[in-house]
Design a protein around this nucleic acid. Structure first.
Lengths: 118, 118
DNA sequence: TTTACATATTCCTATATGAGAATGTATTTT
DNA sequence: AAAATACATTCTCATATAGGAATATGTAAA
């Protein structure tokens, strides 16, 4: 089997850096495709294709108005990723504490038995 | 250009569902490869390859002891993803509030002018 | 109804993937 | 030294990209 499709879920869709830029850009307010093109300096067909992927996984919403299409990030679709990464929060906190403890222990030991190099 | 390598960053590495399972499994404590194989029911070569990807992007650490290799999730490497998704928290909160407001407004309207179907 | 504008789609290609199977490499045990 | 154990690597293959170029579709303006 090959790699999972970019349209299979939010994790795969968001793996592409350009798509992350687009999502950030569209988070505050909706924008027409043309503005994404000029603001992020990506070719228009490329933007349309990225938006297609993001739309398929529900990461953006579209509103049509005449010949313009206004896209906006659907932040709620990012929430599951936030929740998944949150599971690891307690672990990186523990790790940081252990690093800190080791550093403090070292300082304490150095006071007892000074560094031979100094 | 093709898709970015799975080893290019945490986002790409984590796009694969099996690798997310492995990271979750290795979060609490280190485990030898064999335990991952039996616990998650993934073929051993596949596990080794996934671990190779995870190691390249710093998502797991290895400790060698005889013919065993103990892998553990390096939670700190997941933190940037958590921070990135966090940027959208305020937006999905706004969206949920707006949805709630609309629902409440509808209830209020319905009291004024009862549903014609009832 | 032409013309201009905004966006989407198609075709192409180099490249990377994940799974399965087979094999390689250390390390330990007998 | 041979056998067993624990992992890693290599090979093949079907599949899916992302970007570039060209073209299509749909809407509005002249």
């Amino acid at each position: 089997m090959a790699r999972a499709a970019t349209t299979s879920d939010a994790f795969n869709a968001v793996a592409e850096p350009r798509r992350r830029e687009i999502l950030t850009y569209l988070a505050m307010r909706e924008r027409p495709v043309g503005e994404i093109v000029t603001a992020l300096r990506i070719d228009q067909p490329s933007v349309s294709k990225h938006l297609g992927v993001l739309r398929k996984v529900g990461l953006v919403r579209v509103r049509c108005e005449g010949r313009h299409k206004f896209y906006q990030t659907n932040a709620a679709a990012i929430r599951p990723m936030h929740e998944w990464t949150r599971e690891f929060e307690k672990f990186w906190q523990h790790q940081l504490i252990r690093v800190k403890e080791r550093a403090e222990k070292k300082v304490s030991d150095d006071r007892q038995k000074p560094n031979p190099h100094s």
